[in-house]
Amino acid sequence: MPVESVSLFWTASAFVILMMIAGIYCILATFNLTRALIGIEILMKAVTLLLIVVGHVTQHTALAQALVITLIVIEVVVMVAAGGVVLSVFRKNKTIDVRRLRNLKG
């Protein structure tokens, strides 16, 4: 691959890794279910970005576009299901704070 796309790939990868760390931190640090979902969104966005960059670097832009569009649709479906679960938790317990929900032991 050409030199400029290699440097583009490494810059983007660094950014993707930062986003993943942010997403994982967001999931681990919060006690709020909605914020955990936001963390998941950040993780998914990082992967999407990586796929786009990979498509650009390897000159397979059409493949990458097809993958990313499908991915976005799937992500929306998963988020709707997850949002439904959070809503049911809220209706049942009047809270979405994990600390008040720990009925299950690991």
Partner: peptide, 25 residues
């Protein structure tokens, strides 16, 4: 609560698989 746990872990698994997919591409 179990469903939420499953969702979080399942999405993390998906993220791992997609990362792997990106590397394979």
């Amino acid at each position: 609560e179990g469903a939420f746990k499953y969702i979080i872990l399942s999405v993390i698994a998906s993220v791992m698989m997609l990362l792997s997919l990106a590397l394979l591409v």
